[in-house]
Amino acid sequence: MIRLYDCHGRSLDIPPAADQPLPDDACWIDLIHPSADDETRVERLIGVEVPSRDELRDLEPSSRLYIENGAAYLTASVVWKSETDFAEITDIGFVLSGARLVTIRYAEPKAFAIFAANTAREFCGLDGRDVLTRLVEAMVDRCAEVLENRSRKIDTLSSEVFSRGSVSNPEAATRDLEATLGVIASHQRTIAKVRESLMSMARVAGFLQTLPEIAADKLLKQRCRAIAGDIQSLSEHADFISENIIFLLDASLGLISVQQNQVMKVLSVAAMVFLPPTLIGTVYGMNFQNMPELSQPWAYPVALAVMAASALGPYLWFKRKGWF
């Protein structure tokens, strides 16, 4: 799919013939899941090569940020599906050729949808350089939104974890805490993807400041510096959230261990309670000839009473100690 926008944010139609030029005010070509024909068509319209999907996946720094034939090529790793339990990273390509910007993407991050929905308000006689810096700014803002949402969810989860640790049913609390480990892992995965995205965009923001067409514009250069500062602040915030997640994970594992130890304590106390009666019953179950109590009529009830006393004694002592 090919979407074309002019400098005022209005959607334009792609020229039907390959030999027809783009309108003079066309500044942004957005390729979404482009086919080979779409890439070839755009290459003919702008006169520069459009990177393929395999080229976008190249992890070499020299293949992600470079200038070729007068056009700047940038690849940014952007987080998406952050509302789900399985956040992912997608590579988005940017080609800045003169006053026109081409974006190549095989996913639909929310930042692009928000930016495209606000094109009429965002665009006001802009060119490809402005669109590029504003797009990067929108992606950074989206990362900030994801971090804030996850931070609130982690705070809520923290309250739930410590309240579960104080319930009277240890088995139910342990099951709830074990289920919470999966939620914590989901939060950690999302934060890790956001940190990866911020690191990628930090390189993009630094590279933008070196481009002559942006360095010559004071406003664009200041915007790139502001973006770099925002990325630094968000990276520190992501580190803080990650530390909170680690603490929450340790606390959950600790509470699970406490609950399991409580169960083991009850089993140990029960074993100690029944150990003395078992000993007495074992002694009187022996077939010795000289056991005078066996011939007495009161022997059986006395043996039962001794067994009950030997069981009740340890129980009361453990309860007094608070172990039961």
Rank of each mutant, 00 (worst) to 15 (best):
F207A: 02
L208Q: 04
Q209C: 03
T210A: 10
L211K: 03
P212M: 07
I214C: 01
I214W: 09
I214N: 06
A215D: 10
A216I: 10
D217T: 08
D217V: 01
D217I: 04
D217N: 09
D217E: 11
D217A: 13
K218D: 14
K218E: 15
K218G: 09
L219G: 11
L219H: 09
L219I: 15
L219A: 13
L219P: 00
L220P: 04
Q222V: 08
Q222D: 14
R223S: 06
C224L: 03
R225P: 02
R225N: 06
A226E: 15
I227A: 05
I227F: 09
A228C: 07
A228S: 14
G229D: 14
D230P: 04
D230A: 08
I231W: 02
I231K: 00
I231Q: 06
Q232I: 08
S233M: 14
S233I: 00
S233D: 13
S235L: 05
S235M: 08
S235E: 11
E236I: 00
H237T: 03
H237M: 10
H237K: 07
A238C: 07
D239L: 14
D239W: 14
F240M: 02
I245G: 05
I245D: 03
I245V: 14
I246G: 11
F247E: 00
F247W: 14
L248Q: 06
L248I: 04
L249Y: 13
L249V: 01
L249W: 13
L249S: 03
S252C: 09
S252E: 02
L253V: 02
L253R: 06
L253M: 12
G254K: 02
G254Y: 11
L255S: 06
I256T: 00
S257W: 10
S257E: 14
S257G: 09
S257I: 05
S257K: 00
V258F: 12
V258H: 03
V258Q: 08
Q259R: 15
Q260C: 02
Q260P: 00
Q260V: 08
N261W: 06
N261P: 02
Q262F: 10
V263I: 15
V263N: 07
M264L: 13
M264E: 09
K265Y: 07
V266C: 04
V266I: 13
V266K: 08
L267K: 04
L267W: 15
L267C: 07
L267M: 12
S268K: 07
S268I: 10
V269C: 11
V269L: 05
V269N: 01
A270L: 15
A271S: 15
A271V: 10
V273Q: 04
V273G: 03
V273F: 14
L275S: 01
P276W: 07
P276Q: 13
P277I: 12
P277E: 07
T278A: 12
T278K: 08
T278Q: 06
L279W: 06
L279G: 05
G281P: 00
G281R: 00
G281I: 04
G281T: 05
T282I: 02
T282R: 08
T282S: 15
V283W: 15
V283L: 14
V283M: 11
V283K: 00
